[in-house]
């Protein structure tokens, strides 16, 4: 079951690569939240109930509901155009993300350690690198945040791999999640939208040497 969910997660990454509209990104994020909820639920069923509740709450409330709504709000409030404005054509993005997945898959084959199930490793690493790729190739600042959230999801999956033995790490992951998203989005909603009218990356390239 976990494997199925994780594979669906990976497919969502592929979909992410060809998404044009920001709204699609947000929907995919929400969808990923739901998948993570499922994975966490199955994987962490043995840990203590309070902790489990926290994890599940985070995935379902924060990742699937709060953040997507918040993003939507920001886009509306700052009148950001709907297009994701990639530097590269979507086709290439698709190829790159596919490549990322293939490479991580091949890479994980070389791991000899058996204590960790490899699927977590593959999926999370693909998610992390896809997130980084999205950050690097999209023009808007808001897409950076979106990319970052994808990375977060990847990290969350990775933390689930040791979740039963070290639930603390999962909690930390959640903390990171909340902290970073709230903070980044907070700055966004408060300041960047006010100060910079057109929220393009080029606006933030003044500080350089």
């Amino acid at each position: 079951m976990i494997n199925v969910l994780l594979i669906i997660f990976t497919i969502s990454l592929l979909y992410l690569s060809i998404a044009d509209r920001l709204l699609t990104y947000i929907k995919i994020l929400a969808f990923q939240g739901i998948i993570l909820f499922g994975v966490a639920f199955i994987e962490l069923i043995q840990i203590n109930p309070v902790n489990l509740a926290l994890v599940l709450l985070e995935t379902i409330v924060f990742k699937t509901i709060f953040v997507p709504l918040f993003l939507n709000y920001i886009i509306k409030r700052n009148k950001i155009t709907r297009d994701s404005e990639p530097f590269l054509p979507n086709f290439i993005s698709l190829i790159v993300i596919t490549l990322i997945i293939i490479i991580t898959f091949l890479l994980s084959n070389s791991i000899v350690d058996s204590s960790i199930s490899k699927i977590y490793f593959i999926v999370s690493l693909s998610a992390i690198f896809s997130g980084l790729y999205i950050i690097a190739t999209r023009k808007k600042i808001i897409t950076h945040v979106l990319g970052y959230l994808v990375i977060e999801n990847g990290v969350f999956i990775l933390s689930l791999a040791v979740g039963t033995e070290m639930p603390l790490l999962v909690d930390l992951g959640i903390l990171l999640d909340i902290f970073a998203s709230v903070f980044l989005l907070g700055i966004f909603v408060n300041k960047i939208g006010d100060v910079l009218k057109d929220v393009d990356v080029d606006q933030l390239k003044k500080l350089k040497d």
Partner: peptide, 10 residues
């Protein structure tokens, strides 16, 4: 140091 955070991450 070209001012582009995308590069910085890269």
């Amino acid at each position: 140091q070209n001012g582009n955070p995308q590069f910085y991450i890269l």
